[in-house]
Design a binder for these strands. Structure first.
Lengths: 147, 147
DNA sequence: CAAAATTTAATTGCTTACAATCGAATTATA
DNA sequence: TATAATTCGATTGTAAGCAATTAAATTTTG
């Protein structure tokens, strides 16, 4: 019986991983117009919600570590969408804040969720259920995340 | 109203992506003992099911392209788990077949799905529902995959 | 207060993803 | 059957992810 569990289709990880990459692929054409990659996009989503965010906070919200975020934030800084600076209160902390260009980008990003969402083959209540299950997976977690 | 859609938590892509990476992280410690990465593991899953698989078929089953698979298969060949050879019928086609070591690895992989699955905070019927929704996402797809 | 422990980002190294392009082999078609 | 189109895998270049390590700043504690 264990044998069956080794079937590709029997492993939850597989459709989760494949569906995730596929959905991200659907964002790509829309994000290209904004000169953003997908990871840069979800980083911007956080920044559009909060004025000042530390790398640590970003990492906690996005489940990403500094090894991923540091080069990504430098890239976004190069593009002119944000500024990076050390906190005066605690020099260990690097804060990130949007530039005017970064805030302006928000308007151009607004249509994207609807554009991507409209081509998903799920009913609203199915989408809601998927959310619920994914957040269950995500939140009930032993070794949370890193920095 | 569009503004709300730009909230990180409102985007399906985000929990999907984060949950996917988190689940893959849970495999890592078990896979390390087999000297496999996660992507190498799902590749082995396919090979444990089929004797000879072409790179194209692998790509279709895993939703990965040759740019990902070529170096990965070379790596698995270096580890001694598989052999790569051109098809005699069609020289464009590269076939992959497990070595004895590759087949033997299957036994050591058997406990992994149960080990990972047991720490998931989902009821069996919830897991089933999650499957169903993920495969809906995955299968109903316009621009399928690449090679 | 000084030393130890902790926190925070940055860096390094390795492995994906994947778009784009290429070259070789095969198939279609004019 | 030549040549045009297609298929297949490999290659290249960019951007993630992430473990492990490091360095600097801060906090704890002896």
């Amino acid at each position: 019986m264990e044998a069956d569990q080794l079937l590709l289709e029997q492993q939850l990880c597989f459709p989760l991983y494949a569906a995730s990459r596929q959905l991200i692929r659907r964002y790509r054409p829309h994000l290209e117009a904004l000169d953003l990659t997908y990871t840069q996009y979800i980083t911007m989503l956080v920044l559009w919600e909060e004025q000042h965010v530390s790398v640590k906070t970003l990492g906690q919200r996005l489940y990403l570590d500094s090894g991923t975020l540091t080069p990504l934030l430098k890239q976004l800084e190069r593009k002119g969408y944000l500024r990076r600076f050390r906190s005066r209160e605690d020099e260990r902390v690097l804060l990130v804040e949007l530039t005017e260009a970064g805030r302006a980008l928000r308007e151009r990003a607004k249509p994207i969720p609807a554009l991507v969402g409209s081509c998903l083959p799920l009913e609203p209540e199915e989408t809601a259920e998927l959310y619920r299950l994914l957040y269950r997976l995500l939140h009930t977690d032993p070794e949370q995340n890193q920095t």
